[in-house]
Design a protein around this nucleic acid. Sequence first.
DNA 1: TCGATGCTTCGGCTATCGTCGAAGTATGAA
DNA 2: TTCATACTTCGACGATAGCCGAAGCATCGA
Lengths: 233, 233
Amino acid sequence: MKEGPVIASVAALLGDPARANILTTLMDGRALTVSELAEAAGVTLQTASGHLAKLDAANLLMAERQGRHRYFRLSGPDVAQVLEALMGLAQRTGATRVRTGPKDAALRSARICYDHFAGERGVALLKGAQRQGLVEGEKDMSLTEKGRAFFADFGIDLAALEKGRRPVCRACLDWSERHSHLGGALGAALLSRMIDRGWIRRDAGRVLAFTCEGMEGFEVAFVQPTEKASQAA
Amino acid sequence: MKEGPVIASVAALLGDPARANILTTLMDGRALTVSELAEAAGVTLQTASGHLAKLDAANLLMAERQGRHRYFRLSGPDVAQVLEALMGLAQRTGATRVRTGPKDAALRSARICYDHFAGERGVALLKGAQRQGLVEGEKDMSLTEKGRAFFADFGIDLAALEKGRRPVCRACLDWSERHSHLGGALGAALLSRMIDRGWIRRDAGRVLAFTCEGMEGFEVAFVQPTEKASQAA
DNA sequence: TCGATGCTTCGGCTATCGTCGAAGTATGAA
DNA sequence: TTCATACTTCGACGATAGCCGAAGCATCGA
């Protein structure tokens, strides 16, 4: 009868704290897994799964399967726009504002994704490797001859990796960046090799911290040879 | 903890059908009594009273006593803006019902958005004004010299508008079209001026109807000088 | 094939909230 | 003062919906 109920159904979806947390977490356009969103929303996995199903059914989110993960992102900029408008309204009408945690920045910079190296530095690594021609392909990646030599020199036993059934190279969608980082057996081997070399230290949780020499070595090995390209991007 | 709950409390208020009906009923900027809003929302007086108390406590509405009546209106244009944004989102995501009555077409053509002129004709007005160089800018719009002369000639007291705290020009996203129409103080003044001139008549609810001469005058003033451009769009 | 991990579904508990009848308060008119 | 109108508050009922434990799939790696 009225147009009220039409907006009510979608507004009701935004009206639950857990769902609102999920949506605001996704506001920067990243894609996140169910587990990550559950943690962000402060609810259990089952609860988050239910919320995500509702948001997906209402077309506020887009889902994308990747292995046993399921990545969700906002279905469009208009969703974020509505959320921002609501934040503005909430602020004017006297809702309380909160500060953002400092741990977030560290997580974004470098962290563990399952067993490999992710975050802004992880994306930079893969980009550098692609520019240098160490790996080729977009979705199904593989090592080039140049890459085999490079990683062998880096101290990685490629023969051992290729014996396993796990794919050596694999593109893994990064949640803080919008691009992929390097997963698969090589990604895992790279991470442990960098830890062995003293380049990286594991902090609490999934956060990774570079040592001074690690920072420098990383730059020289992956970033600097392609600095022009990386700077442009 | 997060900013989610902040928007959730506001969104939850919009998420109830009765309250959503109340708010959309008030979108034309009028002030209505509790009884009128109760009827519009399809609930009893007590129920409406409770809803209005909540909306008032959240500063989404302004209340004004007048004798034994109590008049409610939206607390500001931003509330109407959020409602329009929600309507647009509901439409894109398919929450809207298939029923498109004849009133719907009229609503889409020309209607009141809070206190200014919206709908397909409203979008055409802004487009024409932009093509003619009366206003400039996309998000933060401002009047040009040519525009000042034009609207003064149209019978609008620009000096008075600029004295107020409300922005003179403001882009307001239209939910039925995908473009903006003209809000702000100038948008409101334009609407009342067109009504004064006998160009437009207020029908029931938010629907606006052009008179014959109004239709012609509108075309000459805003659309025809830029017909080529408008036709293409 | 097996175990581990990520996610979904099911069932039941609980709390919240919308709803309206009935009673209470305030304003205006007779 | 007395009644009528407009609204608010109270109390109880019922429905909805969020939440989590437990169990069920599905995928991956060994």
